[in-house]
Design a protein around this nucleic acid. Structure first.
Length: 429
DNA sequence: TCTGGGGTCCTAGGACCC
DNA sequence: TCTGGGGTCCTAGGACCC
């Protein structure tokens, strides 16, 4: 049985949503079809997604919105603040659809998933890829690109090619040596999964410009220059699988929650409110993976893009007992921000990191330790989390987070939460 | 006026132990 | 006098991902 499985032809597919956030905004607003559209980051700061029409105007992702203002007005670009509630929900629908095609799905990011495809000897992969693309489009309204190959890295390369090269029309299969050579030669090293800015520079210095050239380097050289990750990357390009499908993501080892403010904040009271609300969010994430944290890190800083007095600092604090009880987390976080706060600065950002994370069940209580994170507290947290999921975020929140929240981020162009809020469901005429 | 947020892995080097 | 050397743990920094 095992031997048989090893002999079976195995492939990896990666399905990647095209311009995901921009596509989400269009699903419930079809008038935007064919129009240039962008989505901004938190605080309406940077452009983080753009429709094909907007990209065609020469706009680059990651640039600050204010630098593109003129281009936006001149071309009548539709602008949206990011609406993660909407994107998260549509993402879940896409992933659910993909489970039709394989039992082994790894949700790799909000807009991408790997699928393991086994027993594909007699399957027309091109047809399968087309079917995946068509089904997701039909069931969710989201356009996707599909890459299929013998390794994850090659699948990523195929996916890249399927988007960049119109001949593929959104589906690219890498199944034989000639095809692999032909496609890899056209992929620049910068575009390979695992090659970032620094490695790309180094590779070019060594006259390696495309994926096919990288595929041919010596293993020792790859490892020396790019650590074990580089070696694995080269092997994967050669068709030797080094990375598996990770179906259940391991629990997070650190949970961070931080935001830039909508305007500078000087007052300690306001900073504390903001911090309390981020700690609340972090606590929810912590409990959703059934973990407790034993350390809290608090950090804050001014806006280093500005020509004004700068200050930033952080503090790490060990909790008396590992816990996921939000009131305690807030208590210690607030205590610590007081230690690093300095009066007279215009703060841009504050945040919290929970670390030293274990599964709740793994934490062995010392015989005489006073059990602080107890049943009652857990039950209370469970009920509050449940209510907030069912009735909407912050149905129940903590007094320390404030009511008015003058520091909260700007989201002036927010679209409705069409799919997750009863009051915002679009009417049918 | 206005420049995102949240993660992972690997390695080198220091501290410490025997 | 000789200033070893292997193992482990931790941290900081650098690379990467979306």
């Amino acid at each position: 049985m095992v031997a048989m499985k090893n002999n079976m032809k195995r492939y990896f597919a990666i399905v990647d949503c095209n311009n995901f956030y921009a596509s989400c905004e269009r699903v419930f607003n079809p008038k935007l079809e064919g129009k240039p559209l962008v989505v901004l980051s938190n605080n309406d700061g940077c452009v983080v997604a753009a429709s094909a029409e907007a990209k065609a105007l020469g706009l680059t992702l990651g640039t600050p919105a204010f630098k593109n203002e003129e281009l936006f007005t001149r071309n009548n670009v539709h602008i949206f603040s990011s609406n993660y509630t909407l994107y998260g929900d549509l993402s879940a629908r896409v992933m659910e659809t993909l489970r039709q095609f394989s039992p082994d799905v790894e949700v790799y990011s909000i807009d991408e998933a790997f699928l393991e495809l086994t027993g594909m000897e007699h399957i027309d992969l091109q047809k399968l890829g087309r079917r995946i693309k068509k089904t997701v489009q039909k069931w969710t309204g989201i356009p996707v690109s599909v890459g299929i190959a013998p390794t994850k890295t090659l699948a990523k390369v195929a996916n890249r090619a399927s988007k960049k090269n119109t001949e593929f029309d959104g589906v690219c299969i890498l199944d034989n040596d000639e095809e692999i050579k032909r496609v890899l030669e056209k992929v620049e090293v910068d575009d390979i999964w695992g090659v970032g800015w620094q490695y790309a520079k180094m590779l070019k210095r060594n006259s390696i410009y495309n994926a096919y050239q990288l595929r041919s380097v010596h293993h020792d050289w790859a490892q020396k220059k790019m650590t074990i990750m580089g070696l694995n990357m080269v092997r994967e390009l050669q068709g030797i699988p080094c990375f598996k499908i990770e179906e259940a993501p391991p629990p997070k080892k650190a949970i961070v929650c931080s935001r830039s403010f909508g305007r500078p904040v000087e007052d300690l009271g306001e900073l504390k409110e903001a911090l309390a609300s981020y700690v609340t969010r972090a606590g929810e994430k912590l409990r959703s993976q059934n973990s407790v944290a034993s350390m809290i890190q608090v950090f804050m800083g001014t806006n280093h893009f500005k020509d004004e007095p700068q200050y930033s600092n952080h503090t790490i604090f060990e909790l008396p007992v590992p816990t996921a009880y939000t009131p305690d987390l807030i208590h210690f976080a607030l205590q610590n921000i007081e230690r690093i706060y300095r009066k007279g600065y215009r703060y841009k950002k504050v945040g919290v990191m929970l670390a030293g994370i274990y599964r709740d069940s793994e934490h062995q209580l010392h015989l005489f330790e006073k059990q602080k994170y107890d049943k009652k507290q857990k039950e209370l947290m469970r009920r509050i989390d449940e209510m907030n999921v069912r009735m909407g975020k912050d149905t129940i929140s903590y007094g320390a987070s404030g009511i008015k929240r003058p520091w909260k981020m700007r989201r002036q162009k927010l679209s409705p939460s069409y799919t997750t809020d009863w009051l915002q469901i679009p009417p049918v005429k």
